[in-house]
């Protein structure tokens, strides 16, 4: 079985009127099925309110599906007895860097997860060191989290999850509150986890430039999966992405517009280099 598998998952929020009575339901996730292979880098894209974060919270058993099933490493997340096992195997990093750091010193925060799991003291220290090195924050181990930049705080959060030795890490819009430098740092750390540590990474985001290196991309809209494919396949459908309220990177957009104007370019150009090469080819053939 795949590392994460969702089968027809439905999740509804209750809507309340002013007296607190249930008025109706909002369907946040609507019959979503997906399969994630171990060791891959997956991206889930979508605008705010598309249901992507609600879906993400199912993988860590913070939410349980109202219908359908989610399995993590073969464990049904809705089963009470699997709860802690699921949370250890699927770690989660959240959006707000300030609201997920518990420790007053970086290293103590990274040790929090292993402490909860009952890992022996000596091993906690080993795990903390190795995790902080993996995200490049080892020199900051004695610092107070309050003095770090947003990107550094998110890397500490990633290390905190990594120290639990999970098989999957879900990053729920980890860059939404960061500046461009912070965003780069975090995405680099996430790719490192995947390539060096071999952890399966599921990145939730609305920034398209962050998913260029993903193995597979899911685009969500209205709680449903609207598109699925490799980044190139996704990027080649510029019109559809615009409809889904997503911004295509300028290079892809430029290539698309040129193509519309009659320049013979292939679909789904992702990088500057590709565009320049393709345009040179066009030039030579004339």
């Amino acid at each position: 079985m795949n590392i994460v598998k969702a089968d027809n998952v439905v999740y509804k929020y209750e809507r309340h009127d002013e007296e607190g009575n249930v008025e109706g339901y909002t369907t946040a996730v609507d019959h979503v099925s997906l399969d994630v292979k171990e060791g891959t880098f997956i991206a889930i894209l979508g605008h705010n309110g598309s249901g992507k974060s609600t879906l993400a919270k199912h993988i860590n058993a913070i939410l349980s599906p109202k219908e359908g099933t989610v399995w993590v490493d073969g464990l049904d997340t809705a089963q009470e007895e699997n709860l802690w096992e699921v949370r250890q195997r699927a770690g989660m990093v959240f959006q707000n860097p300030d609201n997920q750091i518990i420790g007053q010193v970086v290293e103590e925060d990274v040790g929090f997860g292993p402490e909860n799991m009952g890992v022996p003291t000596k091993e906690i220290w080993e795990r903390v060191e190795e995790s902080l090195r993996a995200v490049g924050m080892y020199e900051y181990r004695k610092h107070s989290p309050n003095r770090l930049s947003g990107g550094q705080k998110q890397r500490v959060s990633i290390a905190g999850v990594l120290a639990m030795h999970p098989k999957v890490i879900v990053l729920d819009e980890p860059t939404a509150m960061l500046d461009p430098n912070g965003r780069r740092e975090v995405i680099r750390a996430a790719r490192g986890l995947n390539q060096v540590e071999g952890v399966t990474v599921i990145l939730i985001t609305h920034y398209m430039e962050e998913i260029v290196h993903a193995d597979q991309v899911f685009v969500m809209d209205h709680g449903k999966i609207a598109m699925e494919g490799t980044p190139r396949e996704i990027f080649s459908q510029v019109e559809k992405l615009k409809e889904l309220r997503l911004a295509v990177p300028q290079v892809t957009l430029l290539a698309h517009e040129l193509k519309q104007s009659g320049v013979p370019l292939p679909d789904g150009i992702l990088t500057r280099k590709e565009l320049v090469e393709e345009l040179s080819k066009v030039c030579r053939s004339r």
């Binding site: 913070i62 949370r87 770690g91 609201n99 040790g111 292993p114 402490e115 220290w125 903390v128």
Partner: peptide, 19 residues
């Protein structure tokens, strides 16, 4: 924070070790 703590397997003092 409560959500982040639960996601990191926090379930009170029982069975916790210390760094």
């Amino acid at each position: 924070l409560a959500m982040a703590m639960e996601a990191r397997c926090y379930r009170g003092g029982e069975g916790r070790t210390k760094m």
